[in-house]
């Protein structure tokens, strides 16, 4: 708690609503790894999550990701979850060093919840997006050694009554997109696909289909991106964030979209 930094009349002034600051104060060892030096071999050997994307559609924003994590030429996991609800009105999708990314998501989720409980208000979407940038920047020393975490963040802005999408780079740079964005190793083919298929005001079904198709395209051009597998029942995970909240798109809906795309191409 930055209590020492904001004193008034000898005691703390205001309760710091940041969980990360609390953690830094109370359990510094939990964040000590951020200052470690590691070898390039070690950085390459840990699992990396690959392709995730987000797109704006009629009701809000859709965030989706494939299920693969690779370490070097090995598939580390083919059913990994890379898309999470950050709170009730936002979602985060991660690409990069999987262990760090998942931990960052956990910290980010707690950061939002902690703020909400302490102050009694949800952070604005702008506030959430900025906070995420700061978390990424904290990871900068490790990012420079190969453990990059680059998320996409989508949420419903209750004040503007619209879905918004943000993407980040390894330095914590934060940019807003008003159409679509993809990040991770398969992001280029995914973006090419989105460029052709995305248009303003997509319906939810169309949005799921466009997202699934882009991930399929990415998996066809990028070895590190996992394609959907009907016989192993592995499908992309998608989260839709609208005025009513962040909800995972049911697997049946994703499967239907996958089947439709595959049929069209066969």
């Amino acid at each position: 708690m930055t209590d020492r930094i904001l004193p008034l009349a000898g005691s703390s002034f205001g309760a710091n609503p940041s969980f990360v600051d609390l953690l830094r104060e109370a359990r510094p060892e939990e964040l000590a790894h951020l200052r470690q030096t590691i070898s390039a071999d070690a950085a390459g050997a840990v699992p990396h999550g690959t392709t995730v994307l987000g797109l704006i559609y009629g009701d809000g924003v859709l965030v989706a990701g494939d299920r693969r994590a690779t370490s070097g030429y090995t598939i580390a996991d083919d059913s990994m979850r890379k898309v999470f609800a950050a709170d009730d009105y936002s979602a985060i999708a991660i690409a990069g060093a999987a262990g760090m990314a998942v931990e960052m998501v956990r910290l980010f989720q707690l950061e939002l919840e902690h703020y909400e409980k302490l102050t009694g208000d949800r952070l604005s979407l702008e506030g959430k997006a900025n906070r995420l940038a700061q978390l990424i920047r904290q990871n900068f020393p490790l990012a420079m050694q190969g453990l990059v975490v680059v998320p996409l963040f989508g949420g419903f802005d209750e004040r503007r009554d619209a879905g918004r999408l943000f993407y980040y780079d390894a330095t914590g740079g934060r940019w807003e997109e008003d159409d679509y964005q993809a990040t991770g190793s398969g992001s280029q083919p995914a973006k090419n696909s989105l460029k052709k298929r995305w248009r303003p005001g997509l319906s939810r079904d169309e949005a799921v289909r466009v997202a699934v198709e882009a991930l399929l395209d990415a998996s066809e051009d990028d070895v590190a991106t996992g394609g959907p597998s009907v016989y192993r029942r592995i499908f992309p995970i998608a989260l839709a964030v609208t005025a009513t909240g962040a909800d995972e798109v049911p697997e049946s809906e994703v499967e239907a979209a996958v089947t439709a795309v595959l049929e069209e191409r066969s």
């Binding site: 309760a15 609390l22 953690l23 707690l110």
Partner: peptide
């Protein structure tokens, strides 16, 4: 209340 939330969130994280 604030101390309680801090304790709970730290426990849950650790």
């Amino acid at each position: 209340r604030i101390a309680g939330i801090r304790l709970a969130d730290l426990r849950g994280f650790s």
